[in-house]
């Protein structure tokens, strides 16, 4: 079998290390996500799922343990290389969209290309392609405040997809949406997973949403307490 996309060994995350209020959030997480999987990480707030997501997304560093993203030891990388990894290998979808308010949809989708190596000439074409994929090509020139929540999230998904990342990391992507638009967004993830074979990691507190995915990893108090589906 080929190298898994995510391989975590005994991941521990401690805040305020060495101080009286030292706090261990993750107590040795072991997690493997293979190419093409659609995994959900489920947990109540305070369970440590966001901390885990930050580490998976190379936004934060673990205190101990090993994390290999596509076989690469992420923790040993410099800040600059970690930026490049986020840019090229990870597509973020946030709960609150996190679009740049002053830029239109097209510009927002182009942001990761701007920080990458893509030639300027092809940037626009590629961004339009992505917008078309999420059905937003007609609203390309609209700014985020002119878009509905569902539309914003579709733009955010287009942005996450533009550098063809190894994983899509979605943090409560439907949290700010009503259930109907939430379903539309979920359908989009399913489409990306089924048609393009994308590896998707969905972080959510909703059991219902998690039930739609192939594999559910339940996290409680910083430990994985249950796994359902998948190869495990």
């Amino acid at each position: 079998m080929s190298e898994p996309v995510i391989r975590m060994e005994k991941i521990v995350k401690t805040y305020y290390q060495g101080k009286p209020n030292e706090l261990e959030i993750l107590h040795g997480i072991d997690l493997v996500v293979n190419q093409g999987e659609f995994v959900s990480i489920v947990g109540e707030s305070g369970s440590g799922k966001s901390t885990l997501m930050n580490i998976i997304g190379v936004l934060d560093r673990q205190t101990s343990g090993n994390y290999y993203l596509e076989g690469q030891d992420v923790n040993s990388m410099t800040d600059e290389v970690r930026s490049a990894v986020r840019n090229q290998r990870i597509g973020f979808v946030f709960q609150n969209f996190n679009l740049l308010p002053r830029a239109n949809a097209l510009k927002n989708v182009m942001v990761p290309l701007m920080y990458g190596q893509t030639r300027v000439k092809t940037q626009k074409e590629r961004a339009m392609e992505m917008l078309a994929m999420v059905g937003m090509e007609e609203r390309a020139m609209h700014r985020p405040n002119e878009l509905s929540g569902g539309q914003k999230q579709r733009v955010a998904i287009a942005r996450a997809m533009i550098n063809d990342p190894a994983i899509i990391l979605a943090d409560e992507p439907t949290g700010a949406l009503d259930s109907k638009t939430g379903h539309m967004v979920m359908d989009l993830f399913h489409k990306l997973h089924e048609e393009q074979g994308k590896t998707i990691v969905l972080i959510t507190h909703s059991q219902e949403l998690a039930a739609e995915t192939q594999r559910i990893v339940t996290i409680l108090d910083g430990e994985i307490v249950a796994e359902r589906g998948g190869e495990h």
């Binding site: 600059e80 930026s83 490049a84 973020f92 996190n98 920080y115």
Partner: peptide, 16 residues
């Protein structure tokens, strides 16, 4: 600050 965070998450280097 948020915008800066988003840019960094999307791959902006510190020097950028």
């Amino acid at each position: 600050t948020r915008e800066i965070g988003v840019r960094m998450a999307l791959g902006a280097k510190r020097k950028t």
